[in-house]
Amino acid sequence: MRRDYSNHKNGTTTVKVACAVCFWLFSFVWLYAFQADVLAVSQHILSDGATHYNRSLGAIFITLALYLLQLVVSLILRQSKRSYALTYLPSMLFLALISDFNFDDHLDYSLGDWKWLIPLVLLLWGACVWLSKQLLTFENQNNVNNAYFSRDVWQNVLILLVMVLFVTFSTNTNAVFHFQAHAETSLLHGDDDEALHVGAKSLETNASLTMLRAFALSRKGEMGEHLFEYALEGKSTDLLPLKDSQSRLLLLPADSIYKHLGGRPKRPIDVWQYLNAVERDSFATRAVADYVLCGFLMDKNLKAFAHALPRYYEISDSVSLPRHYQEAMVMYRSIQGDTVIARQDSLVYDQWVAIRDLKKQIPDKSARRLRALERHRGSYFYYYLYK
Rank of each mutant, 00 (worst) to 15 (best):
G337Y: 05
A308S: 15
R343C: 09
L358D: 00
R264N: 14
L309W: 01
K300E: 06
V292K: 11
Y291A: 02
R264F: 06
D270Q: 08
L347E: 15
K360I: 00
Y325K: 07
H324F: 05
I341R: 06
A277M: 15
V288C: 07
T339V: 15
L321E: 01
R323V: 13
A308G: 04
Q344G: 11
M329V: 03
Q326D: 04
D317F: 12
D317Q: 12
Q336M: 01
G295W: 01
S316E: 09
R311H: 14
I315T: 04
Y312D: 10
S316I: 06
R311W: 05
N276C: 08
Y325D: 10
Q326G: 10
D270H: 11
L302A: 05
A354N: 14
I315K: 02
A277Q: 15
D338S: 00
I269F: 10
D281P: 02
Q273G: 15
F296T: 03
K300I: 03
L309K: 00
K303R: 04
R323W: 12
E327H: 12
A284G: 12
Y313V: 08
T285F: 07
E314P: 04
Y313E: 08
I355G: 09
H307I: 13
P310A: 05
W272Q: 13
Q326L: 05
V271G: 04
Y349E: 01
K359Q: 08
D350S: 12
F296N: 11
L275D: 05
Y274V: 01
E279S: 09
R280W: 10
D299K: 05
A328F: 08
G295P: 03
E279Y: 07
Q344M: 03
Y291C: 02
A284R: 08
C294G: 01
A277E: 15
D290K: 06
R264S: 14
P265Y: 04
T285W: 09
W272G: 06
E314H: 13
R311Q: 13
F283P: 00
S334H: 04
D345V: 03
Q326H: 09
K360T: 07
